[in-house]
Design a protein around this nucleic acid. Sequence first.
DNA 1: TAAGTATATGTCATATCTGACATAATTGCA
DNA 2: TGCAATTATGTCAGATATGACATATACTTA
Lengths: 107, 107
Amino acid sequence: MNKKKIAKLEKSGWKVGTAADFLNLTPEEAAYVEMKLALAEQLQKQRKRKHLTQHQLARLIHSSQSRVAKMERNDPTVSIDLLVKTLLALGSSPKDVAKAFSFREAA
Amino acid sequence: MNKKKIAKLEKSGWKVGTAADFLNLTPEEAAYVEMKLALAEQLQKQRKRKHLTQHQLARLIHSSQSRVAKMERNDPTVSIDLLVKTLLALGSSPKDVAKAFSFREAA
DNA sequence: TAAGTATATGTCATATCTGACATAATTGCA
DNA sequence: TGCAATTATGTCAGATATGACATATACTTA
């Protein structure tokens, strides 16, 4: 499964169900994109809870507004590493991150 | 905190305590390396449980024995993404990964 | 001891991720 | 409506991660 295809899925399909619903994703691939999405959603939630703009969060983690936007939009160029580091910077504990890692609220 | 230093810490200090015990790690940095270490340990555990050699696991994930070794040794060039993908390939569920993500047995 | 198997380490070319920038689209509000 | 603030998207040069290879070290067992 190539990355472009996953990116497409991420853009069009996310919000209506789970990644596993889509074509040609192996269970591992589906689990992986699900996990990334869960982290992305948790990130936005935490940012908003702290009443930060993307720009402010970007400064906090020495990154840029555009990259924060990509994180929250689950852009395929964003790594789990970056998502995790950002959640930690927002004050999440490893346990919080672990929770975000495996659960995701229905949209 | 630079990467070389963390690599050093990972090599020398890990096994006797938690990363947070060491100098100059911010709480986020400490949490990050702790999480990576927990994933690395879980990975080795799962591989051994399945009676796979590093070489066999490498073939399974289309990687190389040396990279598997680096994953298990927590080499700083290994990303969380790769660790997570590998755990999923070994049959772990996202919940399993989440557990590994936040807990770590004493050595 | 030697030979075979497994794991560890160093290096490198290539692939992927990164922050940054420009700019577009969206949102909120007077 | 218009304007300011915020968020989204495309691009790129530099940074980091990757698989692969060579080779070293460790561990069995004959």
